[in-house]
């Protein structure tokens, strides 16, 4: 099983609903976030292109944050997701420094926090909060090892990219382009 997310940059309007939903669902303190929006415009008026991405931890298959962690607090969990065990985290921030995507932050309570793929919901058969809320259905979550899954089909059918492939992290978030 390999959990993954496909995020459709064509459908996404950059509304940041996924951010608010994550904040309320996961009680992310105000002023912090586990996901965020990047809106890139290129070109010169009036020849412009725009790409909008909802970003979060890529749950890298080869995660530098896991390697950097001195305590195993950052580890691979069910379905390959990368999670942080708060009780094991000492707050050394090595994982933050090691993440090319800046996906982590120090929670005011001291431990390091980031996207969990809402595993608490997934275990209960629910979509992650951001996926469930997205008004444009830009996000698809599921098991990439299952050839019948929506996400597998979508990623097989569409053109996609991952972020900073040259960092060698092998992300599990696919941006459909």
């Amino acid at each position: 099983m390999r959990y993954a997310m496909a995020i459709d940059t064509k459908r996404c309007v950059g509304c940041s609903d996924c951010v608010v939903a994550c904040q309320t669902e996961n009680k992310v303190p105000i002023g912090f976030c586990r996901d965020w929006i990047v809106e890139t415009t290129t070109g010169t008026y009036p020849q412009l292109q725009m790409e909008i991405r909802s970003e979060r931890c890529n749950h890298c298959t080869d995660a530098p944050c896991v390697r950097a962690c001195p305590t195993k607090a950052s580890h691979y969990g069910a379905g390959g997701i990368v999670t942080v065990d708060h009780e094991e985290c000492i707050g050394c921030k090595a994982c933050i420094a090691s993440c090319p995507y800046d996906a982590r932050y120090v929670h005011p309570e001291g431990y390091v926090d980031k996207c969990t793929f809402c595993i608490h919901r997934v275990e209960q058969g629910e979509h992650p909060a951001c996926v469930a809320v997205c008004p444009t259905h830009a996000m698809t979550f599921g098991d990439m090892d299952d050839r019948m899954s929506d996400i597998f089909k979508l990623v097989s059918r569409r053109k996609w990219k991952t972020l900073i492939p040259e960092a060698g992290t092998r992300p599990n978030i696919y941006y459909l382009i």
Partner: peptide, 23 residues
């Protein structure tokens, strides 16, 4: 011109706009 705009709480303390976790 390339314009990159980050929205949404992405002014995470100690991470944005540049990383400064270590003093």
């Amino acid at each position: 011109m390339v314009e990159e705009l980050i929205t949404s709480g992405r002014l995470t303390p100690e991470v944005d706009p540049i990383l400064h976790i270590w003093g």
